[in-house]
Nucleic acid binder design. Sequence first.
DNA 1: GAGTGGTCTAGACCACTAA
DNA 2: TAGTGGTCTAGACCACTCC
Lengths: 248, 248
Amino acid sequence: MLERPKSRYEQVAERLRNDIKQGKYPPGERLPSQTQLAREYGLAQTSIGRAIARLKNEGLVRVEDGKGATVLEVPTVKRVRRTPYRGKGGSFAQAMREAGLEPHTPLAAGPEVVTPSAEVATCLQMGEGQVIRRERHMFGSGHPMQIAVSHIPLSAAGSLDIADTDTNPTGMYERLAQRGHKVTRFQERIEVRRPTEKETVFFGITDSTNVLEVVRIAYDQDDKPVDVTFNVFPATQWALTYEWNAHE
Amino acid sequence: MLERPKSRYEQVAERLRNDIKQGKYPPGERLPSQTQLAREYGLAQTSIGRAIARLKNEGLVRVEDGKGATVLEVPTVKRVRRTPYRGKGGSFAQAMREAGLEPHTPLAAGPEVVTPSAEVATCLQMGEGQVIRRERHMFGSGHPMQIAVSHIPLSAAGSLDIADTDTNPTGMYERLAQRGHKVTRFQERIEVRRPTEKETVFFGITDSTNVLEVVRIAYDQDDKPVDVTFNVFPATQWALTYEWNAHE
DNA sequence: GAGTGGTCTAGACCACTAA
DNA sequence: TAGTGGTCTAGACCACTCC
């Protein structure tokens, strides 16, 4: 099984991977068409299609119907989370600038009062009641990079106003503190999963390309959750970093 | 593009996914053979093969040549990292027991003195010199769960003895402290990548199944790196959790 | 031996894009 | 209209497993 020579379509995928890495097909460029590659490698078009499907799943190329396969630019973005958290919001903008990209984070939905999903309700440990939901779509130099959806229990927030003007979470935490909910503890859970349909459309990826999901929950002084934020990004384009001190 | 009905092989994959989730094919069980499924769904065997390949990449089934597709048990394991780090080693064993699995962490290689790879040398900020390398293969109730490879600069360790008896890193850090290298700061970098060939064999996954790589670097009181550990696990089976306090 | 999955082909059809 | 990628088939061959 180890000795078995790799299948031909995998060999093709590997060569294309190398060609891309070594700049033969730079970002933005089109790969040759599948029929052309088929002639070149002496294989059927179907087999070339399998090879290209691999590159697609790995997030190396983006394939459009009737056009062809375009090489993606994959600047690996570093997202650094220092604990305890000293920064003043803007972790995304900073990561973008460090990667040489211009950040842009428009509001995509909300703030609005909604009934939470089962998962959100579980994270916030609430039996009933509503939450304030806000969704941001985040771009780096025009390319979709990240989706962030945050939820605050209406009971803690008081009213919609709390999420009105600010775009970063820090401002919101200050307002929560004024209402008697001082944020004292954070938790982030990281998982790899298949994307939802909405996410495939936004990121322009196949539904077999994985995404990273980071769920951050903020707790107040009574250890009650007051905010849960879902961050989603294409798995291949990001690296997450956590830093902390050994002895508190 | 959105309205287009899904391809038939994707529909098959989705139905099989549901059947697995709902217990029609419990863990350890075999799926029906591809020819049988082909008859059942009125498709060609090749198309069924595509559907099953999807499940394989998602880590839902394991396919063996000449045998068939077996449903994998996918207990999602939670790995919790509290910062500052209070635990006494054994983070893996604890995570296993919480998931109802019996931990087993034999040494697979080392401790041995080797010349570090370029990546390891970069992490440890060393120009020249050698490192002590140790590789552990970690199992949960017999199933391969994780690979951990740690490197300590020989200059900091003094001799091989430092890594001799202990199996957890905490003991090693105590010895490093005795030699004047007190560990004060940690950094963990998380990435999703394609597995190496060794990893596909160990975990029994396809090379298109992603793995999570967590690189932990420990720094001493002079901010010199004294240990870098690479942890690798199948991406779908794990969830990483980080916790910290807001105001130090 | 019969059954399994994995690969490959040749040809076909469709939906899409481009000129 | 010609070219693109995506899907599907029918049939083939191989390496493997189980009996």
